[in-house]
Computed example of a mutant assay.
Amino acid sequence: MSYNLLKGKKGIIFGALNEMSIAWKVAELAVAEGAEIVLTNTLVSIRMGTIDELAKKCNAQVIPADATSPEDLEVLFTKSMEIFGGKIDFVLHSIGMSPNVRKGLPYDELNYEYLKKTLDISAISFHKVLQTAKKLDAIAEWGSVVALTYAAAQRTMYEYNDMADAKSMLESIARSFGYIYGREKGVRINTISQSPTMTTAGSGVKGFDSLIDFSERMSPLGNATAEECANYCITLFSDLTKKVTMQNLFHDGGFSSMGMSYRAMSQYNKSFNPCDCKE
């Protein structure tokens, strides 16, 4: 069911790779709610993924851009405003990648050049997006910018590695830039801390299946799906949340407020075998 929450609005969606991507679901729903969108990703990701199918379905143009490149971002925002015939109302930042995770390097044996890439791609790119947009005055008054994050920014999660550092920085950027952009231009900036979701990027984290199962058992409402995350994004893009900014909003079925659940404890107890050993 469509509520026309984004009727007449224009937006840029970063990070749609394939149907597994949360950004893909957000793009579909944004258009269903009345928005016009531009899709963007790196050239390599565009070649690897199926974003052209999404563009056709959403009647959207694809503009290649490396979010770590201010030059690419300037072209992206300039062309998008030309396509829309005006300023942009919403932006989704759904970007994350860690070479250390991909290479299987543990946190206490990080490659620091890889760490720089992790931070640049997964967090600093968010600052570059915001700084470029502000420089060009590309986002309309009461516009909304949302970035996707994860609870590992606050809690240590097994094998999440240096992506946790990146997510912490991402959330800090949302607060720091949110104050400036809100004060000067009325633009709101928030992050959504989503349940572990089986995306292409998420599936690259060691033990991700177990993490999803654990989170499902811990969360009183269960894990939030990619489609449900898209619903939440749309509300933040809409005029219904005009005074929400600088927030990290947990969208995780209650996981972030839990210590231990009955289902998780029951499964934990099942893992023990009777033993009279003394060690």
Rank of each mutant, 00 (worst) to 15 (best):
D108V: 08
H93V: 08
S94C: 12
I95D: 02
I95H: 01
I88T: 12
D89F: 02
S80H: 01
K116W: 01
N100E: 07
V91Y: 12
L115P: 01
L76D: 08
K116I: 13
G85A: 03
M97H: 13
T118W: 14
N100L: 05
D89Q: 04
E82P: 01
G86C: 09
I88C: 11
P99E: 11
I95K: 05
L105G: 04
K79Q: 06
G104N: 00
F90I: 15
E113Y: 12
K87C: 09
K79T: 07
V75M: 01
L92C: 04
K87A: 04
K103M: 13
E74Q: 09
T118E: 12
S98I: 06
S80N: 06
E109L: 10
V101L: 11
L110V: 04
K117H: 12
V75K: 08
Y112E: 03
P99C: 11
K116T: 01
I88Q: 14
S80D: 10
D89M: 12
F90Q: 12
M97F: 13
I83F: 14
Y112C: 00
V75I: 07
S98V: 11
G86N: 05
V101I: 13
S94H: 02
E74V: 00
L76C: 06
P99V: 09
K103G: 10
S80R: 03
K116A: 12
G96A: 15
L110D: 11
D108A: 11
M81R: 03
N100A: 09
L105D: 07
I95Q: 02
K103R: 14
Y107K: 00
S80V: 03
L76Q: 12
V75E: 04
L73Q: 04
F90T: 04
R102E: 14
H93D: 13
I88F: 06
F84T: 08
G86T: 06
K79I: 01
E109T: 15
F77M: 09
G104E: 15
I83H: 14
S98H: 12
T118F: 05
